[in-house]
Design a protein around this nucleic acid. Structure first.
Lengths: 230, 230
DNA sequence: TTGCTCCTCACGTCACGTGAGGTGGC
DNA sequence: TTGCTCCTCACGTCACGTGAGGTGGC
């Protein structure tokens, strides 16, 4: 005339472990025991399990289900609804990002919004841009994005392809042409010319990081070219 | 010239523990150690952490981030996008339910869709309806919903309020009037008259459960009335 | 006796948070 | 010596899943 734990679970459409978890979580009273120690569940327990299940299906945690019993339940549902709305909004933003990634308007190797449709970036460029996003403000990043969004010039290509052991004459040539290219960009995009006002952290850690990154990411010939341009 | 774990974490905008977790999860190579055993992180590690962070912000799990490196990454993002769409849909359905609960068109004590705007239900009624939803199909529940959605009649009220020790004459009177009410409902809502075709499980477990629930939920006088009606 | 069910520990999951306890650097 | 940082265990979180090991019922 009474149900075992397994039977109760089956009737309620949950697992054995779930029923036991409801006991452990203090949501469900333990039933009486038969002489052999077997639990004896009755209608009231089944109804309770079904009610708990209804609430967990709505997304309430056990801790909240306990408070629903005590406090004004409307508040719990209002709070839950606001949280759901926020979660949905966040997931939709992620989906929008994923859509941009799918059609090439964004890349997972780069900060949000950076496109790679116009040019291939070297791994050094990708790394640097990611680091810039931790160091500089949105205005700087917006101007950088515009610079990245252009076709690559021959001067840039030569700089990217520069061999570590490039001869002095080659380095001088690349420095002249790449320097002119950088100067042209700087004239048009002032944040790239003077990045200091765009640092997120005024302590100097940002510039130190970028200097170091450049030092580790570019080869000796490229570093020499950059030094000549400065 | 190299960073400690704490410094790397700060530069990347994550916690110490997160960096260590990336090591444990096999996402991030361990750096070289100084003579004293301190870890020495460099630019490549920072870039790697920032890339991992970008992917986890998009909702990828470490297990998937590992496969993004190997397999075709587009698949991972497509899969993720489908999952996000499904999650959003589920959360929106929950919000719709919550809205119904908020305006009284549904109750958390009852199966989805049951309203309590037209009448107060006794606790026995609420319990029974919840149990019915585990035993009967949607057509039965739809007809039951229509029955519940009506104003309560005097006969129902008298049945609900029947005292356990009600006198014979009172029980006979309630049985006559409540029986007429039930007969009227049955004529209009055929599923309530003959529920057997609407059982989800043909084994007889369903009717046994309901019989037992009625036995535990109603008092002796009410059970006597129900017996007379049958 | 065999096969099935019941019971109670108790570890595993996931992405970390949070000490515990010991050592190095200034 | 003191205060700060670094290191490596290792337990806790949440809602259960999944055995392990022992007993009862037929």
């Amino acid at each position: 005339v009474a149900w075992s734990t397994k039977q109760l679970a089956t009737l309620a459409g949950v697992t054995l472990r779930t029923v036991r978890w409801y006991h452990e979580a203090g949501l469900l009273d333990e039933p009486e025991r038969a002489a052999n120690g077997y639990k004896q569940y009755r209608i009231a327990h089944l109804v309770r399990v079904l009610r708990i299940k209804r609430l967990t299906d709505l997304g309430l945690t056990p801790a909240r289900i306990r408070t629903v019993g005590s406090g004004p339940p409307a508040n719990a549902f209002e709070l839950l609804d606001r949280e759901l709305a926020a979660t949905i909004e966040r997931l939709q933003a992620v989906r929008a990002e994923l859509a941009l990634v799918a059609d090439g308007s964004a890349s997972v190797d780069l900060p949000a919004g950076f496109s790679t449709t116009r040019r291939d970036l070297t791994d050094a460029d990708r790394s640097l841009i990611l680091l810039y996003s931790r160091v500089f403000d949105d205005e700087f990043m917006a101007q950088l994005r515009r610079a990245v969004d252009r076709e690559r010039t021959d001067a840039e290509r030569d700089f990217d392809d520069l061999r570590p052991d490039a001869a002095e004459s080659v380095r001088a040539d690349v420095a002249a042409r790449y320097g002119a290219h950088v100067a042209g960009l700087a004239a048009e995009l002032p944040a790239l010319a003077d990045a200091r006002p765009h640092l997120l952290d005024a302590s100097g850690a940002g510039t130190a990081l970028i200097d170091r990154a450049i030092d580790e990411l570019y080869n000796p010939a490229q570093l020499d070219v950059l030094a000549r341009i400065r």
